[in-house]
């Protein structure tokens, strides 16, 4: 008896071609030297979702975002954004890198940095004009930073710097927001500003994918979650995913049993 004919791999997890996901990842694999960082990740982000990417340190959360954007070399994988290739969909994506990834002693004001979010719209070799500056100030206003437009960015507090990044992302008027630990080391006012902005853009039709480190607040701030530990452990609605069993699988001994139970109970 002949073995059955092999069928095309794409049929393993077919993409929804009619209503393409804001972010559809297939087989994303990244390694640093010989150490796997993200392994064979399949994921379809729900439309208009507020999605938390959670997982222990070194689980590949930031790497996943960077790899999706082509910022780190991948071994394999195919990423579609609203059904298009990354190259076609760049203008629909806003990326907020980790705040600590840049040197804030850079000769620029808060307004200058926010204006960078408009560079795609302004175009190459063209100057930033007054209307762009005014637009930048209006985005600063939306994150409660209107009074700091002219301040050199190094003189802002950590939370204020994060809000400048947030305003820059808003200026991109994107449909998919990718945020890398925006809540890390910020004050309560900034935390509220970020949550408000995430909800605003979601209500306006955008999707937000956010690397998040604080398990206590996942259920409050997000409606979906992707649990990652090199492999995808689980994804879905927050209530379905934040279970004792799945958290145990992702975090193992790194979280105390009581802690896991408390978080699972909160969802």
């Amino acid at each position: 008896m002949n073995p059955p004919r092999l069928i095309p791999f794409e049929t393993r997890q077919p993409r929804n071609e009619i209503a393409p996901s804001p972010l559809s990842i297939r087989g994303l694999t990244v390694a640093y030297d010989d150490k796997p960082a993200v392994w064979d990740l399949d994921y379809d982000a729900p439309d208009r979702g507020l999605i938390a990417v959670i997982g222990p340190n070194g689980a590949g959360k930031s790497t996943m975002i960077k790899a999706m954007l082509g910022l780190v070399p991948t071994l394999a994988g195919d990423v579609r954004v609203f059904g298009s290739t990354l190259r076609q969909a760049r203008r629909r994506i806003a990326y907020i890198p980790q705040r600590t990834s840049v040197d804030w002693d850079f000769p620029a004001s808060a307004e200058d940095v926010v204006a960078m979010g408009l560079y795609g719209e302004i175009g190459w070799c063209r100057p930033v004009r007054r209307r762009h500056r005014e637009a930048a100030r209006s985005y600063l206003d939306r994150v409660g930073m209107a009074d700091f437009a002219g301040r050199q960015i190094g003189q802002l507090s950590g939370g204020q710097q994060q809000r400048v990044f947030l305003a820059r992302a808003l200026a991109q008027k994107a449909d998919l927001y990718l945020m890398d630990e925006p809540f890390a080391g910020v004050d309560a006012a900034t935390e509220r500003a970020i949550v408000n902005v995430m909800r605003e853009v979601r209500d306006a039709g955008a999707t937000v994918l956010c690397v998040h480190h604080d398990l206590q607040t996942v259920a409050d701030y997000f409606d979906h979650a992707l649990i990652l530990n090199v492999h995808a452990i689980a994804h879905g609605a927050v209530d379905d995913v934040l279970t004792e069993e799945l958290l145990q699988r992702a975090y193992g001994g790194r979280l105390a049993e009581t802690e896991i139970r408390a978080i699972a109970g909160s969802a």
Partner: peptide, 17 residues
């Protein structure tokens, strides 16, 4: 403008394509 953006935030510039 382009040089400035790359010097300040390489990752952001690259993410814009």
């Amino acid at each position: 403008k382009e040089f400035g953006a790359v010097a300040f935030d390489e990752g952001f510039a690259a993410a814009q394509g």
